[in-house]
Structure formats: C-alpha cells, structure tokens
Design a protein around this nucleic acid. Structure first.
Length: 653
DNA sequence: CCCTAGGGATACAC
DNA sequence: ACTCGTCCCTAGGG
C-alpha cells in the first residue's frame, strides 16, 4: 500500500508528538485503517460470521480518547466503491484471504488456536456491513462521518482542502500525493503519534528535496517509482525517481530516456498508464458535504484534462457517476446529469457503495436477525447443533452489547432460528385471540406502565446504540401492506387468507431498513412495503427524499465542524406509542387509533373494538392455522408459525 | 557505497 | 458473495 519507501525518506521531518497538539481542532480519520486494526481483536468471530462487538469497542475507545481527553472532534471517512482500475488487485487480495481462511479453518478444526488466530488475522475482510455498524454508532453519538464515493484518500484530502478538518489521521503515504497538508500517522492508544506536515518539506535534506517539486512533479515521482495505480519501473525506486524528476521534470522526457536506456519495454504505453494514474490523484470523485454533491478532488478546468475526458477510460480512474436518467453508473462529467441524491444516500451509509439499489445494514443487526450467512465451508458442518453458541440463543441486537443481562421483555427471535417454533405454535393454539392481542399490546408497549422505554432507558436501551434499534422481535412483526394480494410472493413472505402474516426466515434487507432503524418504533404500519424488483427504481426515487430528510440531522452534524462545544453523548428519546395502527383492507389506508397512555386494559379493549369482523368471528381460525412443515415427503414449501401482527386484526369501522 | 526488491517475523487487538 | 499491513534485514546489482 501507499508509496514504497516514501516514509523512510521523510524520516527527518517526522515529528513525534501527541494529540495534545491538536486540542480543540477537528481531525479526519481514515476509517478503514481503524476498522482493520479493530478487526484483529475479533478476527475469528468475523470470519466465522459470528456476532461480536469487539470492533465497535475499539472505535468507542478511540473516540472517547479524542473527545474527552483532547477535545478533538473526529470526522470519520470510510472507503466507498472500488475503482475499476483496482479491481484486479482486489481480486488477488480476495484470493489470498480465501487461502488464509481455509488454512485458519484447518487449524481451527485441529484445535491449534494459535496458528488459527494467525491465519484468521490474515483472512479477515472488512465489509461494508461492519462499516455500517460504526456508522450507526456515529449517527447516535453525534460523530461526523462520511462514506467516500470511491477511495477514502481523496475524500480525506478534500475535507482538509475545504477547511472542514485541520488534519488527517491515517497511515497512508498516498495522502501526501493527493495533496494532504498535515498527516498524522502511527497514532496509538496513548495519544502518541507522528506528524508529517507539508510545511516541513523545506527542512528535508538535500538528498531528497521534496520541497523542490510541485504537486504535479510529486505525482510524476510516485508513478515512476510505483504506487497504487502504476506498477513502477523495474530498478527505479523513490530516490532514483527523485533524481530523474528533478533533472527532467516532465514525465514524457523521463520515460523516453528510460526506454532509450532499455529500462522500459513499452514507453508509450507506460506513459499513458502514468497519465491515467495522475488523474486518480488529481480528479478522483469526492462527495461534498457542503453542497451535497458529487465532485472531483480538484476542479476540472484545465483544457488538457478536458481533452482527456473524451477518452472514456479516464472514468475507470476517477470513478463513474450515477446517472439521473438511467440510475446506473456511467461515464458522466456534467454536474446536472449526475444523481447527487443517490450519491448522498451512499455518503450517509444508507446504501451499499458498490450497489446503490441495495440498502446497507449493520452487520450485527443482520446476524441478530438470523439472516443467512455466507459461511458455508463444506468441510465444516453447519447444523443447528454446530452453530456458535451466541447464534443458538435468542438475542436482540441490544443484547450483543449488554451481554450479561437477559431482558425479560425480550421474546425475540424464536421464530427465526426455529428452536421454539413448536412451543410458540402450541401457545398460539391454546390461547384465544384475546390473550394474543393482550400479549401484543404489552409486547409493543402500547401503554404506559409496562416496561416503558425512557430516554435513559433502564436496562432496555443498548449501551452503545441509544436510539431504539431494530430488535429482532420488531423485525419479526413487520407487516406488508399488500397482504390482501394473496399471490404476493415477494420477499418470500406468504399470507393466509385470513390476513395473518407468515414470516419466513429470509427477509429482504430493505424491510429492515424501512423498519425501526429509520422509523423509530411502530413500524407496524402499511409503510413497510416490500419493494418489488420492477418497481424498485421508482420506489427508490420516491423514498429517496424521505430518507434524506430523515438523515438531514446527521448531515448537519457532518457539516458543522467548527462547533467545539463539548457535547454530552446525546440520548435520542425513544418514542412512546400513543397509537395503534390499522389498515383498511381495500384501499390500504393507514389509520391511527388513539390509545390511552397509561392504561393497558382499556387500550386492549379499544383495539378489540376495532377488530375486523372476520377475525372477531373466526377467532377460532387462529388456533387452526395449518402448518405443512410436518410433512417430510415433499418439495412443499415450509410454512412457519404465523407471526401475528396487530394491524391485521383491527380496522376502523 | 547506494539503491532496490523480496522474504521472514511481527504487531495490531482483547 | 461488495475493501488497503508493515518493519527490518539482506542479497544482489550498479
């Protein structure tokens, strides 16, 4: 990574210092570097797809240090989509990770945990879902963050250039080539670090006179000696490249010379490669949190560059942009053709950086919800009995963070892992509709007095995620508005004729996004429609504004960087339910039914009075819900125990 | 003597 | 099926 041998040459201007030096200022942080270090502590869990909060602890520790020990405002910057030009190397890395992973698993099976750890550490992959875990924490604790459209490096430098941050915490020497002014490296948990400042270049020894080079020549230097975007010339290191650049300045001259001396086979081709690489350093895409637009690191004004833009290959280096018209990534350069709103959704971490049609969900929430894992190594059995202990238990996302306490209110994910399905079924059968409703009311806390979630929330709220998160139980009871359409097979959900929802194991991520994470509690409304694939594009457009509105607060936090007032960690109050929601059968209209705040019993009777006649009369039908899961002789689709949803029962007369 | 390239050992974290 | 290691030592070439 980075520029081979550059940092050693800068030894003389590497200032050992501490974070005290930056008291009161704002520092940008390379999110990947921290994620990678954090991942080491839990590399086993990460590769085995087990839940863990260790990597989040790392972030909290570091942020606490910055905030309370040094009053430094952090600004986390994460990597986004991968550039086309780097996809080859990414593939190679993935291969080597796979190799290390199978080795790790081998040692793991043999019980050689020391060797296993060594290879787990090498096989650990930082995923966007892990990034989202950190982002969720940032959102709820007023920490500024942004997901770069492509690489974090230019985004970091862009923030510095715009004056949004006073320095950059990263290990990457590339940043200097992008034009970083103040680079802070080797930060440890005691706050010690090393600063490399551009102003100090003039103090460099004659041997390596970086001060003599302008930004363009610095880029000439690194494309010759080798960087992320070029292979470099054989036999030319950083020192020799420096001599060449100082002497001849222009890239074409140098390459001609190298070819003449037989150090380069195809000079013209390499020159082209270098020119492309330099556009990476100069004009890679960034996202501006000020204008909320996709921009380039430096403005493209130069006529020479505009000529190059005609060459479509340049977009593989600066990154494509999402088209307003087609919704696809295209070779766009004109501002008004770019869908800045979609890029904003990526920037705030709502969508996958590489695929803006897919919603990005916190890794730990996915695991808590029992979503299918990608862990399917054939040599390891993955039967229920073999599952990690933490997956066997019924856990909510909260309980990952308060591991010791088992909450009474947590009835949670039994229907997901299938262990208690039979039990639940028999419960439902033995109970009448009354008790089901009552249970539902209490579970959803549609009244005061029963385990109310307060702002500082007793033992209910998560220690880290103060906002009410998607607990598994609430994900489980999400409803789908077109339930009357019995043909609907979208998202592997099925419905019985009486309108009771059956939730199967696999659920589309979109539902989770549109659930509690974004809508606080009470997602039991018709708002949670499943998006059909063919409707996706239009749906995205429609939902886009809402999402952006919801996250406006967050972005405000991003923009606001001069506010150094030391804020306490803000607790977002969890909204109390004052309404039950009901849907009319035909037009799917959502109606609010006001409830009395502190009276569970009267609320239950209010809800009962809104019962759909069909349900009211057929209360026995609930106990006769058929489950075909018993039959073994079949390709028959399995039906799970119905998860009763309040909105199915009630409607306004 | 300087410079480059490559391999081995090592920490990172808890 | 969606993302980056690094330091130090040394052989070997110029």
């Amino acid at each position: 990574m980075g520029i081979q041998g550059l940092l050693p040459q800068l030894k003389d201007i590497q200032q050992p210092t501490t974070l005290e030096r930056y008291r009161g200022s704002t520092l940008a942080i390379d999110g990947y570097a921290w994620l990678h270090r954090a991942a080491h502590g839990c590399c086993l869990e990460l590769t085995l797809e087990q839940p863990t909060n260790n990597y989040l602890r790392f972030l909290i520790k570091r942020l606490t240090m910055l905030k309370y020990q040094y009053n430094i405002k952090p600004y986390l910057v994460f990597d986004g989509a991968s550039l086309i030009t780097k996809q080859k190397t990414n593939l190679k890395r993935q291969e080597s990770r796979e190799k290390n992973k199978s080795l790790a698993l081998k040692f793991h099976r043999e019980g050689n945990s020391k060797c296993a750890f060594e290879y787990f550490a090498k096989s650990v992959a930082i995923t966007p879902e892990m990034m989202k875990c950190w982002i969720d924490y940032c959102k709820n604790n007023d920490v500024s963050y942004i997901v770069a459209p492509y690489e974090a490096d230019p985004q970091l430098v862009y923030l510095e250039k715009m004056g949004l941050v006073d320095g950059i915490i990263s290990e990457d020497s590339d940043l200097l080539v992008f034009g970083c002014n103040r680079l802070i490296t080797k930060l440890n948990d005691r706050g010690e670090c090393i600063e490399i400042s551009k102003d100090d270049f003039k103090r460099l020894p004659m041997k390596f006179p970086l001060y003599d080079l302008n930004q363009d020549e610095l880029q000439n230097l690194v494309v010759l000696s080798g960087c992320d975007y070029t292979t470099g010339v054989n036999g030319i290191g950083i020192v020799k490249a420096m001599k060449l650049v100082r002497k001849y300045r222009k890239l074409d001259k140098i390459i001609l010379l190298l070819q003449r001396d037989d150090k380069l086979r195809n000079g013209a081709e390499y020159l082209k490669e270098c020119e492309y690489a330099k556009t990476c350093f100069k004009y890679q895409r960034c996202f501006s949190p000020i204008t909320n637009k996709l921009v380039t690191l430096n403005d493209i004004e130069d006529e020479d560059v505009l000529k190059n833009v005609k060459d479509e290959k340049i977009f593989q280096y600066i990154g494509l942009a999402i088209s307003k018209k087609t919704g696809l990534r295209e070779n766009l350069i004109k501002d008004d053709e770019i869908d800045h709103d979609l890029h904003k959704l990526i920037a705030i971490g709502n969508r996958y950086p590489n695929d803006h049609t897919k919603c990005l969900v916190n890794r730990e929430i996915i695991l808590a919800a029992g979503m299918p894992t990608t862990y399917n190594d054939n040599s390891i059995t993955t039967s229920i009995n073999d599952k990690p202990r933490c997956l066997k238990r019924s856990l909510t996302i909260d309980s990952f963070f308060i591991q010791k306490k088992k909450r009474e209110t947590d009835v949670s994910m039994d229907t997901f892992n299938g262990t208690n399905i039979a039990k639940k079924k028999s419960e439902n059968e033995s109970e009448g509709i009354d008790s089901v409703i009552e249970k539902k009311v209490r579970k959803r806390k549609l009244c005061g007095g029963i385990s109310l979630d307060t702002a500082n929330g007793g033992n209910v709220g998560s220690k880290f995620f103060t906002k009410s998160f998607a607990t598994v139980s609430s994900i489980n009871t999400l409803s789908v508005c077109n339930s009357t359409n019995s043909n609907s097979t979208v998202g592997k959900q099925e419905y019985l004729s009486n309108g009771i929802e059956i939730t199967t194991e696999k659920r589309p991520l979109k539902e989770i996004e549109s659930s509690d994470e974004y809508n606080d509690v009470n997602s039991d409304t018709g708002a949670n429609e499943i998006m059909k694939d063919d409707l996706l594009q239009t749906k995205i457009k429609k939902n886009k504004e809402d999402e952006i509105k919801l996250d406006e607060k967050v972005m405000d936090g991003i923009i606001e960087t001069n506010n150094n007032s030391e804020k306490q960690i803000k607790k977002t109050p969890i909204l109390l339910s004052k309404y039950a929601y009901s849907i009319k059968d035909k037009d799917k209209e959502v109606i609010k039914i006001p409830l009395r705040e502190k009276d569970a019993n009267s609320n239950i009777s209010i809800i009962k009075s809104h019962l759909r006649p069909s349900i009211r009369s057929k209360s026995s039908s609930i106990s006769t819900v058929e489950s075909s899961s018993g039959s073994d002789d079949s390709g028959i689709k399995r039906r799970r125990t119905p998860s009763l949803t309040l909105s199915r029962f009630i409607y306004k007369e």
